[in-house]
Nucleic acid binder design. Structure first.
Lengths: 212, 212
DNA sequence: GGCAAACTTGACGGGGGCGTCACCTTCTGT
DNA sequence: ACAGAAGGTGACGCCCCCGTCAAGTTTGCC
């Protein structure tokens, strides 16, 4: 009655599709349960204050099991951030790539980001609450922000004559910072209105970026 | 030889001017030493991971002494934030108040903020690293950002016809977010160039805010 | 000079986190 | 059906933090 109940553990959907092995299914469920619990804990009390046991407690697993999946809490954060921030960046960039006008370039990028925020609120909260820690951890600050990619895209747009010639690096940072801040405001809205957030940013940045 | 050496403790300048009392001088020095140590600790490892003892260890004081000055680490953070973020807000607002043109309104506000960042790097680092925690702590998000004040000032400018009629609240958030992000980028520069940061933001926001 | 008030000190009991590991249950392959 | 591998379990030893408080030191004042 003590061991092996772990398969019923995960709060997330049963992942029994690929490779019918029960062993394998449990493994994925446990990993998912740990990640889900950690997402909540980091969002609620912050990474620094969180302990491995805080995470385990929101799970049906035992302490020792945690260490079969991750060596420490930091590794969990890394997994979480890579999974989620990576996805957000990909989507935003895809939206920008498909844009055919400078207006769409700006508007659709913001829009993709705001839509993504709304899809996983817990993750958004985690990112907001721990942005400073994440920055300090992966010293490449852009991992969080994707600002480098934006700067690159902006540079291309400037060279193509689509956009006025500004200080690309800082303008990219400004756009990212603005999106982060407006994004958290939007999430506080009831209901959140990504349309409004997008339009506000688009209005400001398009005007400022328009070819003079 | 064990007690009472605390007066020589503080790393900060001797504050013996007002009220020559030695007792009073020690008290101020100790308080200042704790605040200075806490600033470093919070900036280095983050508020959540910091312990009261981490702070005390960067001091010549004993554990017990800490509790004569603050009831817990959170109170220290509150004192630090009130002291510093308050000052930053005051300066920025003063700069905006003196502005006579819409351009100056935008440019001087950013400039005042960047100049302030450069004045106390440790505090800047603390704010950057713990922005999420601070937000969560004082649930009034604007305590960190001063975004409400900016929104107010913007509204007035719109009514005076100085600035185009945008979504004031989100535009304010965008300006604050942009300043935060560009500010941290600027601090990473060697040497930091507040002029460049100011111009980049001014170019973007003035264009966008200019009366169409 | 001398005494009371003010303050500092650091050891202490209680609490809890860390990572491990011997033991036990469950699954898999034959 | 069964044996062995895979993997879950939770108590354990070690460490450190918390907030307190009795004892000791310094200051202010008469």
């Amino acid at each position: 009655m003590t061991a092996g109940q772990a398969s019923a553990a995960g709060g997330r959907g049963t992942a029994l599709e690929l490779a019918g092995g029960k062993r394998e299914a449990t493994k994925q469920a446990n990993r998912a349960a740990i990640l889900a619990a950690a997402r909540e804990v980091f969002a609620d009390i912050g990474f620094g204050a969180a302990t491995v046991r805080d995470i385990v407690r929101r799970t049906e697993l035992a302490t020792g099991t945690f260490y079969n999946y991750f060596p420490d809490k930091q590794s969990v954060l890394v997994a979480l951030v890579e999974e989620s921030a990576g996805e957000a960046r990909v989507r935003v960039r895809a939206a920008r790539r498909e844009a055919r006008t400078p207006e769409a370039f700006v508007r659709d990028g913001f829009r993709a980001y705001f839509d993504y925020l709304l899809e996983d609120r817990t993750m958004s909260e985690l990112l907001r609450r721990n942005a400073g820690t994440i920055r300090a951890m992966f010293d490449e600050p852009s991992l969080v922000a994707g600002a480098d990619e934006l700067a690159e895209d902006l540079r291309a747009a400037v060279e193509a004559g689509l956009v006025a010639d500004h200080d690309v690096e800082y303008v990219a940072a400004a756009m990212v910072g603005a999106a982060l801040e407006v994004g958290t405001r939007m999430l506080d809205g009831d209901p959140p209105d990504p349309e409004r957030a997008t339009e506000a940013l688009a209005a400001v940045f398009i005007g400022g970026l328009r070819r003079s």
